[in-house]
């Protein structure tokens, strides 16, 4: 474990807290993409199957938190706050994201075992899971400030894994090329959002797309 990964996981927890806080205080899930949230549950369920045969206090606790919280978010979006969910602006074709991740998982897993193929699927799916959310923000042309903080924290989580991978490569010649490639792609997908977030939201202005 290193400070970068710890900070990354902390940002991940913060993003989930911001999301749930926003939904429960505003009693609304407006501006949040259900498709992205559903993809995240799929990412966690397919990646954390090793909960059943490995145990590490930190990792197992975090895995349970991520699976539980994303299931809870989906419950909120399909239950109490369903009236505030507008599926007409959540139109990204997730079948291509799932299909692409599945193909890559079948072609290039570390090992052709069910657990490893699912893990690889999850890594690739996570790299694109934010696209429906970013696409929705693009379509509406703006986003609530709290939503931009959520997206920023979510992007910062995996961005911080990059120095973690560099650190681990330099200190222990460990490296996980699949996670690194997918993690870099994931972070690049946030880059225009990060730019607008930095130039707009952090200057105290509303998040509006040019």
């Amino acid at each position: 474990m290193n400070i970068f990964r710890l900070a990354g996981d902390l940002f991940h927890l913060i993003s989930i807290f911001i999301l749930i806080h926003k939904m429960t205080t505003s009693k609304s899930c407006s501006g949040i993409s259900f498709k992205s949230q559903a993809l995240y549950l799929l990412v966690y369920v397919t990646r954390y199957l090793d909960l059943f045969w490995t145990f590490a206090l930190y990792n197992s606790t975090m895995k349970i938190i991520f699976i539980g919280s994303s299931a809870y978010v989906l419950h909120l979006m399909t239950g109490p706050f369903k009236p505030t969910h507008d599926p007409n602006i959540d139109t990204f074709k997730v079948r291509y994201l799932i299909g692409g991740a599945a193909i890559l998982a079948l072609l290039f897993p570390y090992k052709w075992t069910p657990a490893e193929v699912l893990w690889t699927f999850s890594i690739w799916l996570e790299s694109v899971a934010i696209l429906p959310q970013l696409f929705m923000v693009q379509r509406t042309g703006a986003a609530e400030t709290i939503t931009t903080h959520y997206i920023f924290a979510l992007g910062a989580y995996r961005a911080l894994y990059i120095p973690n991978w560099i650190y681990r490569y330099l200190t222990s010649t460990f490296w996980d090329p699949l996670s690194i490639i997918a993690g870099v792609i994931q972070t690049v997908l946030y880059s225009d959002f990060f730019y607008i977030y930095y130039t707009k939201v952090l200057q105290g202005r509303k998040f509006e797309l040019p």
């Binding site: 990964r5 990646r47 090793d50 991520f66 973690n164 699949l178 996670s179």
Partner: peptide, 10 residues
């Protein structure tokens, strides 16, 4: 540790 022998990152 070789890849694929269990993943220790989230």
């Amino acid at each position: 540790k070789k890849d694929g022998e269990g993943h220790d990152e989230l």
